[in-house]
């Protein structure tokens, strides 16, 4: 018994060492991007996609939902920041957390959909995102800027927003690392695997799902806000672009749903690939993104990390 607990402790040690290692590598690397004069825009979006894919993982990998309208949270966040800053003259650092709050409010409005499952949930999520886009598009022009969108004015500050994005990413990753070890995370996974059985084992399924859902909605909303600040402009076409959902889903799946490292790795690999292709063949970019998705689903449905762990189950204890 004692020997076993020791083995457990050492597994934990490896797990957390690995997590800290990955965390600090990411941190040091990204922190030095503006200092070393590397491509700020590329790395800004890399961090954004890492955050998006990781947060999506909470809904899909942990809770078992496929929100195909995930972009709704991102779009709401973008418009919240833009409107608060531009129309209500809020300071940015107050507007950004409020974007997160807006995401949570929207998630609460969508909460009744959590009793749906599988494709029904996916389709409803898609439709709700469509409704969000249409509602915002048809709001008065003086509020949302109509089809021209909203300019945030002279408030752009690429390096500052870069570091804010980094902070958001760190908080998101820390949250998910905590979640994956926490009792809430276990309850979520049990619910994903068999909701009725989990309920009969004493898990308060609706509450657990709601918590997971809110975590999953908060971060994309903040991402939307930060990106609005970074690009200095928001319009419905880009803020509610379905491609945002597509990329988030694909990056998360590529890495492996249900693991902490999966979406990070997936986002890094795919964003890098995306950039490479985009530079070489700008026209083929979308086509290759589509083909990559098909190939992923057919040949690597568990993603990079998921496939690795399938082959080496004993590593599950060590890899975050």
């Amino acid at each position: 018994m004692a020997a076993r607990s020791r083995a457990l402790d050492s597994a934990d040690r490896i797990y957390f060492t690995l997590a800290a290692l990955i965390g600090s590598v990411l941190l040091v690397y990204f922190a030095s991007v503006p200092l070393l004069g590397l491509n700020v825009a590329f790395h800004f979006y890399l961090m954004l996609w890492i955050t998006m894919a990781s947060a999506f993982n909470v809904a899909s990998g942990f809770a078992g939902y496929m929100p195909f309208g995930y972009v709704a949270f991102y779009g709401i966040g973008a418009f919240t920041t833009a409107i608060l800053v531009k129309k209500a003259a809020f300071p940015l650092f107050l507007a950004l957390p409020l974007s997160g709050v807006a995401g949570i409010v929207l998630a609460l409005l969508f909460a009744p959909t959590l009793r749906l499952s599988g494709i029904y949930f996916g389709i409803v999520s898609l439709a709700l995102a469509g409704i969000c886009r249409l509602v915002i598009t048809n709001m008065p022009e003086q509020l949302t800027g109509g089809s021209f969108g909203l300019q945030l004015g002279s408030r752009a500050h690429p390096v500052q927003s870069f570091y804010v994005m980094m902070a958001v990413m760190v908080v998101a990753l820390a949250t998910i690392l905590w979640l994956s070890r926490s009792r809430l995370g276990k309850a979520l996974r049990a619910t994903r695997d068999d909701a009725d059985a989990a309920e009969m084992m004493g898990v308060n399924v609706p509450i657990v799902r709601l918590y997971g859902w809110l975590i999953s909605a908060f971060f994309p909303a903040v991402c939307g806000g930060v990106e609005a600040w970074y690009t200095n402009v928001v319009d419905t076409e880009t803020a509610f672009n379905t491609l945002t959902t597509a990329k988030t889903v694909i990056y998360a799946v590529a890495g492996g749903l249900g693991t902490v490292t999966g979406p990070i790795l997936g986002a890094v690999a795919m964003v890098w690939l995306d950039e490479l292709i985009w530079r070489q063949f700008p026209l083929l970019n979308l086509l290759i993104l589509g083909l990559a998705t098909i190939i992923l689903v057919l040949f690597l449905p568990r993603g990079i990390v998921g496939t690795l762990l399938r082959k080496k189950p004993q590593w599950r204890r060590y890899i975050p």
Binding site: M66, F68, G118, I119, G122, L243, A246, V249, I250, V253, L284, N285, L286, L287, L289, G290, L291, A292, T293, I294, L296, V297, L298, P301
Partner: peptide
């Protein structure tokens, strides 16, 4: 069932791009 949704998402992107 769910993976089919995702795969055809890819098919949709690829077909539109094509």
């Amino acid at each position: 069932e769910l993976m089919s949704f995702l795969m055809f998402y890819g098919v949709s992107i690829a077909a539109a791009a094509l």
